[in-house]
Every structure is written in structure tokens, then in C-alpha cells.
Design a protein around this nucleic acid. Structure first.
Lengths: 206, 206
DNA sequence: GGTAACTTGTGAAGAAATTCACAAGTTCAA
DNA sequence: TTGAACTTGTGAATTTCTTCACAAGTTACC
């Protein structure tokens, strides 16, 4: 299969969100044009994105909302539940643990870790914070799919190395630090400082 | 001036972070190759990115760390302080308000708003939560530069409209909703669900 | 059945971003 | 002063991504 661009996957995610919205509102079919209008793209882009995976539409009619959203969930791997661990029980980590939107989309938070002994043993949203040092062993017994890194930038690489060694193959990184990982490990970064700087640039050079 | 690609601006942000790190460690010069290695890109990319703004390096030597980071700060508009407001004092909004990393980089949180009367009047990190309805008036008197949206997806568009009407020209959107705004307004989205779905896709099709 | 109005799927064209490759400048040491 | 070792800046080549444009299929209606 041809390599799928990152930008394409991001858009699929956006399309899926609209489709779920349409599904709730009982709309049965939708055209690439309507989908594009809401996603801030073009109908050709929508069709091209989908064409990488097959042809799901009907000429003259558009796409079945139910069918396309099911296919997108399948393509994105959202038919199964993913086991997620959060590392770092500070402000951000705790907020993430308490945010139930993830579970709704099939990302189940199964554990929270921290290296600070003062935090270990406390609870966040019903989950007891565990010592980070126990991660490798626990991951061996019950391998998590995704590790969310909510640790200070200075600790990020070290923690990432530990995560990778523990056999976890996907990382969502909130630390403002560019992680170095083997290419078999998928990393996505959520970097608020970078986004703010992007806005700063836009305001300055707009 | 030629329009600068988003990806370029993001990389400038990354370069700047490394440069600041080098600055602290007292390293005086750095080559595009070293900068690239840490940023996960190539030296040609680094040089091309910088070339849009001028030539800051010395052949045979590389770049002066102090000079280049000063130039990047200037390019990114980080020499001044930006006034930021947070809308939504829920889990995410509160965590952001308490996260002091922003202030350190020149993004000063000046107010927190919420539309829930039960939350209005309480304090988050020393800031009293204000009623969202007062935003337009207060923005007139003291215009904020950036609005951070930490509201539910269902309210996001409405709040964004209000923000735009209040004259704010940059939005950092945490709500999982594609905002429709005039193109004079800069929007960056931080969409954790989308990133997780990107990881899901990578794990499924890797 | 015929035709008007839609809409998809997709090669081809076009635009944009990245990488290549090398002339030209700098440093250092002998 | 010369030469070796670096490194930048940038047109050109290449690759990647997006948009165009249209044949082909579908529906609705008379």
C-alpha cells in the first residue's frame, strides 16, 4: 500500500467528526462538497483522500453517512479499544486523566505514572498514581498501546527512552521537546508553545 | 514578502528552542547540520528555512547562537509580550491557566472567562474567573491579542464568533471543532483526539 | 424512454515543499 | 601564502501534495 500522508490522515479524522455529527442528526447521505465546506478544504481533496482506501461513494448521490463513517473508523483503527497510559501527574497530566472525551473515542486510560514519590499513591479520577520505575515490569505483563508524555521537557527524552524500551510503540508528547525515537515508534507532539509562537508570527507578519 | 509556509514557521520554533538550550550551555556557534540533527530534519532544510528571512550565518563557521536566536525571536514576534485570555475554566482551561510555561515565553494570561455562573467569581491561579458576557466590553477597553478556547465543542463556534467580534485576531482552539472564522483571524488548533487517532492509524497500518 | 441535474473517481496538470549539489566564503595550521 | 577542512546560501532538480477537468454513473421527473 502506498504511504499515506500525514495531512491525509488528519483530514480523515476531521471528516469522521462531521460524519458522526451528521449521523446523530439523522442525515443519510452527504456529498464531498458538503464535507469539504465544513472541513475547510475542497471536494476534490476529499475524494482524493478517500480514494487512497477505496471508493465508498455513489456517483450522482454522494456518500452514505453511516457507511463512510464506519469505513473511516476502520481505516483509522478506531474499531478497537486502545490502552493508554499517562506519564506525569502534574497539571497537564491530571487534566488529561480527568478528561473523559478520550474514553468516549476508544482511548481508555489504564494507568497514570509519576516519578515523584509525593504524588505516587494519590488518586486521579479513580486511578492510583504509580511509580514510574514500575512501568517496564507492568508493561511487560499488560502492554499499553499508547503513552502520553506529560512530563517536563528536561525529563522527556529519558522517559521516552524508557517507554520505548518497555515495548510501547506510540507516544503522544506534550513536553516541549523534540523526541528522538526509533522510526518504528510513532510520535505525535502537542506543543502549545509552538502553536502560540505560530500565532505570534501570524500577528506580527499578518 | 513571499508567503511563509506553516511548516517553516513550526520549524523556526523548534530551532529557537534548541538555540536557547545551546545559549544556556554557553555554546557560541552552531552549524545547520547540528541544528538539523536535533530537529529531525536536514541541513538544507534549515538553511532554506532561514534563507526566507535573510542570511544569518558565516560560511565555514555556522551561525552565532546568540545572534540567530535573537533574529528568530524577532521573526516570530517574540520580542514583545502578548496578552492572552483563556475562555473556559474547565479542566483544560484551568490547567492552562496554571501552567506557567506560557508566561516564561512572553504569553501573559491576563484573564479567564467562563459562561457558567457557578464558576464565575472563583479564582484560578490568582485570576478571578469573569463572566463570558463581559468579554466584548472588556476587550474594547483592553484588547487581548490571543484567545485560548477551552470550551466544549458544541459551544466553540459561538464563542469564536464572539471573540472575533470583540476584535481579537488570533485564536488557539482546544475544542475538537473546526472553526469558521474570517481569514483575517489566525487560528491554530490543538486537537488531542486527532493526534490520538493519528497514532491509532499508525499502529493499525504500521 | 429521454433528459436534466448531480456527483464520484481519477489521470493529468499545476503548485508547493524538500532535497541536491556546488560556487563561494571562512578558519586554521604549517 | 597555500592548502585542507568546513559551512553557508541558493538555483535547479526532485518529490510530494493539491487542484483541475471530465468520463461515467445515478437519480428524478416528465
Amino acid at each position: 500500500m502506498k504511504r499515506i500522508a500525514d495531512s491525509t490522515v488528519r483530514r480523515l479524522s476531521i471528516y469522521l467528526r462531521f460524519l458522526e455529527d451528521f449521523e446523530k442528526r439523522g442525515i443519510a447521505t452527504i456529498s464531498s462538497d458538503e464535507l469539504a465546506a465544513r472541513g475547510g478544504t475542497t471536494s476534490a481533496q476529499v475524494r482524493k483522500d478517500l480514494s487512497f482506501f477505496g471508493s465508498f461513494g455513489k456517483r450522482g448521490l454522494g456518500y452514505s453517512v453511516a457507511e463512510l463513517s464506519a469505513r473511516l473508523r476502520q481505516i483509522l483503527g478506531l474499531e478497537r479499544e486502545w490502552q493508554v497510559i499517562i506519564i506525569g501527574a502534574g497539571k497537564i497530566g491530571a487534566a488529561l486523566a480527568q478528561y473523559h472525551g478520550f474514553a468516549q473515542r476508544g482511548f481508555r486510560i489504564v494507568a497514570v505514572y509519576d516519578s515523584d514519590p509525593a504524588k505516587v499513591g494519590r488518586s486521579v479520577d479513580g486511578l492510583v498514581i504509580r511509580p514510574l520505575s514500575s512501568l517496564p515490569d507492568e508493561a511487560k505483563r499488560q502492554p499499553p498501546d499508547i503513552a502520553v508524555l506529560a512530563v517536563p521537557a528536561t525529563a522527556a527524552q529519558e522517559v521516552a527512552d524508557m517507554v520505548v524500551k518497555s515495548g510501547i510503540r506510540a507516544i503522544l508528547n506534550f513536553a516541549p521537546h523534540q523526541l528522538q525515537v526509533p522510526e518504528s515508534v510513532a510520535v505525535k507532539a502537542v506543543n502549545m508553545a509552538m502553536e502560540l509562537e505560530g500565532l505570534s508570527f501570524a500577528l506580527t507578519n499578518g
